[in-house]
Simulated assay, not measured.
Amino acid sequence: MIRLEGVEGQAGSFHLGPIDLSLPAGAAHALLGPSGAGKSTLLRMILGLETPQKGRILFKGEEISHRAVEERGFGYLPQHLALFPHLSVEENLRYGLKARKRSGAGYETHLKHLIDATGIAPLLDRRPETLSGGERQRVALVRALAPKPELLLLDEPFSALDPALRRELWHLTRSLQEIDGTAMLIITHDMQEAFALADRLHLIIDGTIRQEGTPTQLWEHPHDAQTARYLGVRNFLKIESWEPEDRIVRVAGLSHPLYFHETPPTQEPSLCAIRPESIEITENEEGSDIFTLPAEAFSEPGGTLWRARLGNGEILEVRESRMRTPGEKRELHLRLPPEKLLLYP
């Protein structure tokens, strides 16, 4: 469907690329990354608002790197929605159809289906300023999909909404995308949003794609320590020595070694990482893989974050689904599962 080959760009001292990215027809992908990573620059190139300095952009096999915005025909849902305040909701919905000269029974049936699916029929005579945030989002989504674009680009359109409404709109957007078979590329810094909306993720950091794969692949196997930190890994333990043949690492602050299951890295690792939710709290006090550490409880939505102190004074964060009293102090018997350990140079 759309393919980026060696795309590069420059904005002041910031360099983007080279970027290689492929989005098949009907697929839902996300370009995920922190602010300043290059997401917006790359989006502008795909839309046609900027031209790559190097490389090319192909759509259905044809190069479109220098093609005008209106000639590309992509659907676009921007962060600030850009509804026309002087038009009614229905006039907003029909704007894209008129601009692209799309008419006929097929488009009318499609528009009616979108209106019914999103529940905005009672809003058709109203102006955008009278709508709630969620209603405006629905209207903008329908407007973007009404001309039946082959590719829909979303630029963090749900970032200003409360969490419950955002989740509702994620599911609505995904269901409409699957029904219509529209290819979709979501631009976002929000990991939850990317995981909810996309089948495949392209993680961009400092202007380069650091890793791509399914949400499960990125979550379970971040390629490097910087990627792991961005994807929510909080514990990074300094490795003092390792025995790759026996798959053993000795880390600072723990009394006995850790065992790992992953294939030993080609470079000697300096960090052993694990997610707080991957650490097991057990009642067993003895065992070669059990560590007893003093810890303090901190509340967080849906559970407790324990901050356990290692022998060298470093903190090991442990997440528990059970709610505990904030400030509670106790000794925790912990197990770091070998299959959950990540090793990085």
Results as ranks from 00 to 15, higher is better:
Ala82Phe: 10
Ala82Asn: 14
Leu83Glu: 13
Leu83Asn: 10
Phe84Ser: 07
Phe84Leu: 15
Phe84Lys: 13
Phe84Asn: 06
Phe84Pro: 08
Phe84Tyr: 15
Phe84Met: 13
Pro85Lys: 11
Pro85Asp: 15
His86Asn: 15
His86Thr: 15
His86Ile: 13
Leu87Met: 13
Leu87Pro: 02
Ser88His: 02
Ser88Asp: 04
Ser88Gln: 08
Val89Gly: 02
Val89Thr: 05
Glu90Ile: 04
Glu90Val: 06
Glu91Arg: 07
Glu91Trp: 00
Glu91Lys: 09
Asn92Leu: 13
Asn92Gln: 09
Leu93Asn: 03
Leu93Lys: 08
Leu93Ala: 08
Leu93Cys: 11
Arg94Asn: 14
Tyr95Leu: 08
Gly96Ile: 03
Gly96Trp: 08
Gly96Val: 06
Gly96Ser: 06
Leu97Met: 03
Lys98Gly: 01
Ala99Phe: 08
Ala99Arg: 13
Arg100Gln: 12
Arg100His: 14
Arg100Ile: 00
Arg100Tyr: 09
Lys101Glu: 14
Lys101Gly: 11
Lys101His: 12
Arg102Ala: 09
Ser103Val: 08
Gly104Lys: 06
Gly104Val: 10
Gly104Glu: 06
Gly104Arg: 04
Ala105Arg: 14
Gly106Asp: 09
Gly106Gln: 08
Gly106Cys: 06
Tyr107Ile: 05
Tyr107Glu: 13
Thr109Asn: 09
Thr109Gln: 13
Thr109Glu: 11
Leu111Phe: 04
Leu111Cys: 10
Leu111Thr: 04
Lys112Gly: 07
Lys112Cys: 01
Lys112Arg: 15
His113Arg: 14
His113Tyr: 15
His113Ser: 12
His113Pro: 00
Leu114Tyr: 03
Leu114Ile: 10
Ile115Met: 09
Ile115Arg: 06
Ile115Cys: 07
Asp116Thr: 15
Asp116Met: 14
Ala117Pro: 00
Ala117Glu: 11
Ala117Cys: 05
Ala117Phe: 03
Thr118His: 09
Thr118Tyr: 05
Gly119Lys: 15
Gly119Ile: 11
Gly119Pro: 09
Ile120Lys: 09
Ile120Asn: 07
Ala121Phe: 14
Ala121Lys: 15
Ala121Pro: 13
Pro122Ile: 02
Pro122Leu: 05
Pro122Glu: 01
Leu123Thr: 11
Leu123Ala: 07
Arg126Thr: 07
Arg127Ile: 07
Pro128Asn: 01
Pro128Gly: 01
Glu129Lys: 03
